[in-house]
Amino acid sequence: MSMQHIEDGVLHAWLDDALDADVGMDGEAVAQHLAECDQCRRRLEEARASKAAVSAMFLASDAPLPPPPAFQVLESAARSGGDAPVRPAGGRSKRRSGWTRGPRVRLAWAATIAVAVSAGVLARELSDRRGIDLPATLEYEREAVHAEPDEEAPRQAAERQKAESADLRQAPTEPARVDADEQVGRERLEANPAPALIASAPRVAGCWRSATDSPGGVTAWFRLEAKPDPFVAEDSRTFESDAEAGVMSPSTASWRPLGADSIIVAFPGLEIRLRVEEDRLAGVYRGSMNRDAEDAAYSVSELSFERVPCPNR
């Protein structure tokens, strides 16, 4: 045994990538001990599960957010000396009309997120053929106990809220395909108090390619992974390019189940909600590709991906 058993706090620092830089401990010594000690490895998995459970419940509790106001609006508010918040309602009607059809997607903002650009191009091409209207919006309704004078329009901003939610109470579903790693993931889950949220992870793990015949030759494909934790955003799923689509960087995308048969794949400013079908992911793309623009438009369009074999890495 190279050292004493590792404390829980150190395991969490290890998982949070804070060991060397912030805590000043030698990560290699911890790694070495973990390699030798079954007990600490087991506790590491428990720590990983509780971290993942907490992240998942926060994710599932996030209210849908509309795009932020244009930065210029805040600048002029700051210039005019007003420290009162700009109402989210500003520009609402314009923005709401922008919620509808696709081709208004602009790519400037998303240029930093290569994969989002790709998905956006794809969405635009698709929506040229068959744009669909925004299906639903959410309204926040307040049962005010003490209505405050400045709360004149509680529902205005909410009208442009994206509608989304996650169903925590879904029954576990049978995986279409269970390999050894996924089995480990499931067992790990059953051994901790995590929500049933992740039960659908094995069904969507794998590689998916856009099932479109876009003449521009833009083919998006991505890999959804269910490990090491089925739903931890970082490092559990990556978007990668195919050779013809050019280089796409790994992204900080995350995905989460939505009900028993859907998932949401989320990038900053871009969300794709997909139904999980037999060998197909289908659904609706909605997202804003240019948050700086005054009319930061959301586009909504249909998408379809089919399961393909994963290439070797």
């Binding site: 299906p135 639903a136 309204e139 926040y140 309704e141 307040r142 049962e143 609706v284």
Partner: peptide, 15 residues
């Protein structure tokens, strides 16, 4: 006040 989420428009498409 306690905020409450409410669906205001029905879906035609399926998403």
């Amino acid at each position: 006040g306690r905020e409450k989420l409410r669906l205001v428009a029905a879906d035609a498409g399926g998403g």
